[in-house]
């Protein structure tokens, strides 16, 4: 059985099943979800895992994600036009 927190060579992934889907990413260290919204991704540049004892910081890699961020901006505009941006 797996016990304790993972060490540096342990990779964890999380899959949500049987329930609603939320935006965000599973913390690469503890596996707990780090929730992100479309607005978060457009405004913030870093996200911190709030799980006690974890504290992993995710920094948006702007060089690699330029195109993705542009796409998110366009998505925001279009969702607003469609009235589905909540």
């Amino acid at each position: 059985m797996t016990r304790g927190r993972p060490g540096p060579d342990v990779r964890r992934t999380v899959r949500e099943g049987g329930g609603g889907r939320r935006g965000g990413i599973a913390c690469p260290q503890c596996g707990e979800p780090i929730e992100m919204t479309l607005d978060d991704l457009l405004v913030r540049r870093s996200f911190t895992c709030r799980t006690a004892g974890c504290g992993v910081v995710l920094r948006l890699d702007q060089r690699r994600s330029n195109e993705a961020i542009d796409t998110l901006r366009q998505l925001k505009t279009k969702l607003r036009e469609l009235g589905t941006d909540g």
């Binding site: 690469p28 996200f47 995710l58 920094r59 948006l60 890699d61 195109e67 993705a68 796409t71």
Partner: peptide, 12 residues
Amino acid sequence: LRMISFVAERAT
């Protein structure tokens, strides 16, 4: 798929 990239930083 369009991808987005992060750098995860962890203190060891």
